[in-house]
């Protein structure tokens, strides 16, 4: 089970109009890990996630999930978009939004059954929003809204979860509660792929990393990827940021192996 590949991406190039956003990205990801996707702004992290989910059409290359095409395993993969991608003034309650996780191609017309209702209630409970079940989503804090999105993905009962910046604009307490939910999922054998931009917390959150800047810079276990060399390859001139990270690496007394990673 451990060696199984969750997501594989081959020779993936994606471009909007002018230049490519992703260029010849090629990797395979393991199953049952919390995987971070990091890279500077505009490095194609969100584009990568959207392409894996089939929301964007690649110019070349392909994506496989559990060794099958996306459409064969739609119900095995759940997507948590950026919180700011929707209008939270929408007239819906927490329950309404989480219920959307139970929608699918085949059951959009029929009413949700008891099993659906139970799964939705469990998902809301898991993210600790039971008290807010009937509250309109505009009356929630940013962290609570993020947890609504996670509950909606949980309600899909998938094997693989893709999260786009789940920690953006949430407080530290919410961040650690989200992490503990994700760790629990990992322990159940689920794969969790997270886009993350805060380098300072990378060491705490992830065990596996994909480092991206239009091209794939590095991928692999945390120790192999989170090195000064790789980071300066990905982040280029942003040296002040980099030196801060190096300090963090030193401070946590992290064993750094200085070796070139084959690209």
């Amino acid at each position: 089970m451990k060696d199984q590949i969750s997501i594989e991406v081959h020779n993936l190039t994606v471009s909007y109009g002018a230049g490519p956003v992703l260029w010849d990205v090629d990797f395979e990801l393991p199953t049952g890990k919390i995987i971070g996707v990091i890279g500077p702004n505009g490095s194609g992290k969100t584009t990568l996630l959207k392409t894996i989910m089939g929301l964007l059409e690649p110019s070349s290359g392909y994506v496989k999930i559990q060794n099958k095409s996306l459409n064969e395993v739609r119900d095995k993969i759940a997507y948590v978009p950026q919180r700011t991608s929707v209008d939270w003034d929408f007239p819906a309650s927490v329950y309404d939004v989480v219920m959307m996780g139970r929608y699918g191609k085949r059951n959009l017309i029929r009413r949700p059954n008891n099993a659906d209702v139970e799964i939705v209630e469990q998902s809301i409970q898991k993210v600790g929003l039971s008290d807010f079940r009937d509250r309109q989503i505009s009356q929630l804090s940013g962290g609570q809204q993020q947890r609504v999105f996670i509950a909606r993905a949980l309600a899909q009962k998938a094997d693989i979860y893709l999260l786009d910046e789940p920690f953006a604009g949430v407080d530290a307490a919410t961040e650690s509660s989200i992490i503990s939910i994700l760790e629990e999922m990992r322990n159940e054998g689920k794969t969790v792929l997270i886009i993350h931009h805060d380098l300072q917390t990378v060491l705490e959150h992830f065990e596996y990393l994909v480092l991206l800047n239009t091209r794939l810079i590095a991928k692999g276990n945390l120790q192999e990827v989170f090195t000064k060399e790789n980071l300066s390859n990905a982040y280029g001139g942003q040296l002040t940021l980099l030196s801060k990270v190096v300090e963090i690496i030193k401070a946590t007394d992290f064993p750094i192996r200085e070796k070139d990673v084959d690209l």
Partner: peptide, 22 residues
Amino acid sequence: LGFRGFKLLSFDEDYGLALGIN
């Protein structure tokens, strides 16, 4: 009949696509 489809379309179209809904 299409209430859930229209609701999904209005709230989060991308999520609907990710669910495999046309």
